[in-house]
Amino acid sequence: MDQSKITVRYAKAFFSLAKEKKQLDLLKTDVELISTLCKDSADFRLLLESPVVKTSKKIKLIQAIFSKKINALSLSFLELITTNKREAHLPGICRNILNLYRLDQGVKTAVLTTAIDMKPAIIAQITAKLEKDLNAEIELSKQVDPKLIGGFVLRVDDQQIDASIASQLRKVKETLLQSEIK
């Protein structure tokens, strides 16, 4: 079965169950913790992906890692995924669950890329302005890309505003090349 189908199906099933039990906020917190561990710990990823470690041993290790950190429903879900030998898909499942949560709660994601690191006060102002203009809660993540030279690139969902110096220089170059050809 296609990996994306697996992650989407498990994510939808778990999200629906958590919504039915009115535990969406707990689900989000738990999934963020699991997702962070998947990103930050190479050892944990190796455990999930290892064909050598037996399923029973993986379940015991997962219980040891998460038993006091996440709620029982989330722990049961992790055990189910491991029992079904789908634990290698856990990062994708977590990503899809968080996307479903944002969609359900009306939260929009935004990525602000700047040439230099911005002060938290400016980030807070940008977030407040976006929330007001879009009439939605905004999850703003920031990135630094010195290649922009200056300005910013703001991506909200599938829309992008490119107000970077690098982009403006590229446009000037294209204009000059076009006028030179004529």
Rank of each mutant, 00 (worst) to 15 (best):
I122R: 03
K142N: 15
L134S: 02
T127W: 06
L140Q: 02
A11Y: 10
E20I: 09
K54F: 05
K28V: 09
V111M: 06
L33D: 00
H89D: 13
I70G: 00
P146N: 11
A121P: 01
D157K: 10
K68R: 11
L48C: 11
L26E: 15
L176P: 04
A72K: 15
D145I: 03
K173H: 09
C38M: 11
D25Y: 12
T36G: 11
A88D: 07
A11G: 05
K69Y: 13
F44V: 14
A64G: 14
V156M: 01
A64K: 13
Y101N: 04
L90V: 06
K21T: 12
Q105L: 07
I161W: 14
F44L: 14
L100T: 00
A128T: 08
P51H: 06
T114L: 06
A115V: 11
K129M: 02
N71K: 08
A42M: 12
Y10G: 12
R86N: 11
K85N: 11
A121L: 05
K60F: 03
K12T: 11
L26T: 09
L24T: 07
A11I: 07
N135Q: 13
I93Q: 03
A163Q: 08
K58H: 03
R95Y: 13
E139D: 07
E87K: 04
F77P: 04
I122T: 10
D117F: 02
L47M: 12
L47F: 02
L169Y: 12
T109I: 11
I59R: 00
L177F: 14
Y101A: 00
I165K: 04
V8C: 03
L27H: 08
V144D: 08
L48I: 08
I59D: 00
V53E: 04
Q23V: 02
R86W: 09
L148V: 07
S67H: 10
L37V: 15
L26C: 08
F66K: 00
E139A: 04
F152I: 02
N96V: 05
L140V: 01
K39S: 14
P51A: 09
K173P: 01
R45S: 14
S179Q: 10
F15R: 09
A88R: 12
S76L: 14
L140G: 01
L61Y: 04
I181N: 11
I126V: 15
K19Q: 15
T7D: 03
D2R: 14
I93K: 02
T114P: 05
E137V: 07
I181A: 13
L46P: 01
K85E: 14
I93A: 08
D43T: 11
L17K: 09
R155T: 13
L47N: 00
D117L: 09
T36W: 04
K5G: 03
T175V: 07
K69T: 13
A110F: 04
T113P: 10
R95S: 15
L140C: 01
R95E: 15
L112M: 05
K21F: 07
S76E: 15
D133H: 03
S4M: 08
L177N: 15
N99V: 06
A64I: 01
K171R: 15
K68N: 11
S141T: 13
V111L: 11
